[in-house]
Amino acid sequence: MLKIEDLHVEVDGKPILKGINLEIEAGQVHAIMGPNGSGKSTLAYVLAGKDGYEVTKGRVLYKGQDLLEMAPELRAAEGLFLGFQYPVAIPGVSNIYFLKAAVNAIRKHRGEDPLDAIDFMKLSKEKAALVQLPDELTKRSVNDGFSGGEKKRNEIFQMAMLEPSLAVLDETDSGLDIDALKVVAEGVNALRGPDRAMLVITHYQRLLDHIVPDVVHVLIDGQIVRTGDKGLAMQLEKEGYAGVRNALQP
C-alpha cells in the first residue's frame, strides 16, 4: 500500500526528516510515536502534499505510484486521507456541501456517477451517527465554531464518508477528553478492514489502548529509531522517550 524509502525533507532549508523507511500493507494499522518536534506532522503533511516541504532525497510509493508527484486532490482521489491535527475552519462553506463536492469529485475520478441528494443525505446520516456528530454540525460551516472534540469527530466523519484506502491520522487524540477519545477511536475502528491501511500518529500511548496497532514506530529527530509491536508503546509509556533515547546511546 505505502512504501517510504529513505525520505529526507527540509522546511525552510532545515532538515526535519532524515531518512525515513516505512512500509505499510493493506489491512495493517501502524502507529508512529514521537516527542514534539520529532517530525511527525511533517511526515503527515508530506504524504498529503502540502506546499513548503522540500523532499531532498528518497521516494514514496503509494499503490505502486510515485506519491510525491501527485497533486493533493489526486492523492485524495486515489484513496489517501489525512486527518488533521488542527482542522482549519472555513466560514461560508457548509460542511455538508463541501463533503458532497469531495465525495463526488472522488467518485468522478473513479468513473462513478455522482451521488444524488437523497443517497448522499442517507450516507451522511449513517456516517455521522458513527461518530455521534450532531446533525446541526453537518450543516454548519466547515469546523467554524466547532469545539476541539467536534473538529476531530468531523475529521473521522469525513474519513467515513470518503472511505480511503490509506488514512493518516495526525494526533487525532490531541485535545480530546476520554469520552470523546473513545467515540473517535470507535469511529476509526469501525473503518478498519482488510483493504484499508492506517497510519496513526500520536504523542501518547493512550490512543493506542483504543486503536490497537499492528506495528509501532518511534520517531525521534527525523528518524525511526525503533520498530516493534504494541508492546513498544507500553514500554514508551513506562520509560518515556528519554528511556528510548538512552537505550540507543552506544
Partner: peptide, 30 residues
C-alpha cells in the same frame, strides 16, 4: 485566498480550481 483552507479542501479530493471557486464564492456570499 487562505492557503490552509485551500489545502484542506484539496486533501478531500476537491480539484484546485473548484476549491478556489468555493472559497471565493463563500467570501462574498456571506
Amino acid at each position: 485566498l487562505d492557503q490552509d483552507q485551500l489545502f484542506y479542501l484539496r486533501t478531500r479530493g476537491i480539484p484546485e480550481p473548484l476549491a478556489n471557486a468555493m472559497l471565493t464564492y463563500a467570501f462574498l456570499e456571506s
